[in-house]
Deep mutational scan, measured.
Amino acid sequence: EAHAAIDTFTKYLDIDEDFATVLVEEGFSTLEELAYVPMKELLEIEGLDEPTVEALRERAKNALATIAQ
């Protein structure tokens, strides 16, 4: 499951495998979680700032909209 989540994140969020791995290690496994989890939870991840989190959430929401079509 972790590998599938990493693949999904790299494909749809335009991030590298290392960043995707950090997200999975922090407990995220779906685009929905990244799109809708409280921003505070993402900001608790070391190295993430508000602009990065906002961009990540926007990419996740856009990916979900694209997949739904």
Rank of each mutant, 00 (worst) to 15 (best):
E1F: 03
E1R: 05
E1G: 13
E1A: 12
E1L: 09
E1K: 10
A2I: 13
A2Y: 14
H3C: 10
H3N: 12
H3A: 13
H3F: 08
A4K: 15
A5M: 11
A5P: 08
I6A: 05
I6Q: 05
I6M: 07
I6Y: 04
I6W: 02
D7T: 07
D7C: 09
D7N: 09
T8V: 13
T8E: 10
T8M: 15
F9S: 01
F9V: 02
F9C: 04
F9Y: 03
T10A: 07
K11W: 07
K11T: 08
K11F: 09
Y12H: 06
Y12G: 02
L13H: 00
L13F: 02
L13C: 02
D14Q: 08
D14S: 08
D14H: 09
D14C: 09
I15W: 01
D16Y: 06
D16I: 05
D16M: 07
E17L: 12
E17F: 13
E17W: 14
D18R: 14
D18F: 12
F19R: 04
F19C: 08
F19G: 02
F19N: 03
F19A: 06
F19V: 11
A20S: 04
A20D: 01
A20E: 00
T21S: 11
T21N: 11
T21E: 08
T21H: 11
T21R: 15
T21F: 11
V22S: 09
V22W: 09
V22D: 03
V22N: 08
L23N: 00
L23K: 00
L23D: 00
V24R: 04
V24W: 15
V24M: 08
V24E: 03
E25W: 06
E25M: 13
E25I: 11
E26T: 14
E26L: 15
E26D: 06
G27W: 03
G27S: 02
G27N: 02
F28P: 01
F28R: 01
F28E: 00
F28N: 01
S29A: 09
S29F: 14
T30E: 04
T30R: 09
T30D: 04
T30M: 05
T30C: 05
T30A: 06
L31C: 02
L31W: 01
L31K: 01
E32H: 10
E32Y: 07
E32S: 08
E32A: 10
E33C: 08
L34C: 02
L34Q: 00
L34E: 00
L34I: 15
A35R: 03
A35N: 03
Y36H: 14
Y36S: 15
Y36P: 01
V37F: 11
V37N: 12
V37R: 15
V37W: 10
P38Y: 02
P38H: 06
M39C: 06
M39K: 11
M39G: 06
M39A: 11
K40R: 12
K40H: 14
K40A: 13
K40Q: 14
K40F: 12
E41C: 11
E41R: 12
E41I: 11
L42Y: 05
L42M: 09
L42W: 06
L43Y: 07
L43K: 06
L43G: 05
E44P: 05
I45R: 05
I45H: 04
G47H: 06
G47N: 07
G47Q: 06
G47P: 03
L48T: 06
L48H: 03
L48I: 11
D49K: 05
D49G: 05
D49P: 04
E50K: 13
E50C: 08
E50D: 07
P51S: 13
P51V: 13
P51E: 13
P51I: 12
T52C: 08
V53G: 14
V53S: 09
V53C: 09
E54M: 05
E54V: 14
E54T: 13
L56H: 00
L56D: 00
L56P: 00
R57F: 02
R57I: 14
R57S: 06
E58L: 06
E58V: 08
E58M: 04
R59A: 11
R59S: 09
R59G: 07
R59Y: 03
R59Q: 09
A60K: 00
A60Y: 00
A60V: 09
A60S: 05
K61I: 13
K61E: 06
N62K: 15
N62M: 09
N62I: 14
N62R: 15
N62S: 14
A63Y: 03
A63W: 01
A63I: 08
L64G: 03
L64S: 03
A65I: 13
A65H: 11
A65N: 11
A65Q: 10
T66Q: 14
T66F: 08
T66D: 11
T66M: 13
T66R: 10
I67T: 06
I67V: 08
I67H: 06
I67D: 06
A68G: 11
A68Y: 03
A68N: 12
A68S: 11
Q69H: 10
Q69C: 08
Q69K: 14
Q69S: 12
